[in-house]
Amino acid sequence: MSPRLSAHDLNKLSPRQREIHDDILSRRGRVGGPFPVWLRNPELAECAQKLGAYCRYDTCLPPILSELAILVVAGYWDAPVEWGIHAPIARRAGLPEQVILDIEEGRPPHLEDSKARAVYDYTKELLASGRVGDAMHARAVSELSESGVIDLVALIGYYSLVAFTLNAFEMPMPEEKLGSVSG
């Protein structure tokens, strides 16, 4: 798989693209993943960066639950670059290796924590049908709070956009291979 877009020449960025590039770099330490694609439309890149920063760093969900949902999304959309970036982050957040392996291999993981189980089940149900049943929604609200479910849905949507972008433009794994690569 080779990228469908040529690499951006940093010397040829417009002032607006440079401003957003530098903002992404200052927040994330690198401009990878979907951002090289989105930077071709700087207004999209700016909006996506803000939503992504919220979904990644500022939701009311603890990182272990956010990363669990991100891995479910990456696996569902068969997004190896998203998986490769987030599997190590999930490990650092404390997600057990067996849970990561199970999701990677398409098996339902054994999740003892009821909040983690709610995140996994809600994410799978929403991705599978674009909807969530009343019982699942009530269970998720009970486990995560209403705000937690709102943040979870935003996170699922944002990381689906990331997966679509990475897959549609056949973006490569960052130079430093960060994790296992499979859907």
Rank of each mutant, 00 (worst) to 15 (best):
I24C: 03
L161G: 07
E97L: 11
V141L: 04
R56D: 00
A154W: 10
I156E: 02
D22F: 01
A87W: 01
R4T: 13
R16C: 02
V72Q: 04
F35Q: 00
R131Q: 10
E143H: 06
L71K: 01
A118V: 06
L51Q: 07
E175A: 11
V132N: 04
A163F: 05
A7D: 10
R92F: 09
V181E: 09
G106I: 06
P174S: 08
S14Y: 01
G32F: 09
V99E: 00
I100A: 02
V141P: 06
E104K: 11
C55M: 12
A116N: 01
S6G: 15
A116E: 03
P96A: 08
S26N: 14
M1A: 11
S145V: 05
V72T: 10
I103S: 03
P36Q: 07
K124Q: 13
Y76F: 15
K177W: 04
I20F: 03
P109H: 03
L51H: 05
S142Y: 15
I24G: 03
P172K: 11
R4H: 15
V99L: 06
G32N: 13
V73H: 02
E97D: 15
P109V: 06
I85F: 04
Y158Q: 09
A128M: 11
P34N: 08
Y120V: 08
G106D: 11
H21Y: 10
P88M: 04
Y159G: 02
Y122W: 15
G52K: 05
A53R: 07
R92E: 12
V141H: 09
S26I: 01
D22R: 06
E143V: 06
L127M: 12
L5K: 07
Y122E: 05
P80K: 09
Y76I: 00
H86G: 03
R27L: 10
D78F: 10
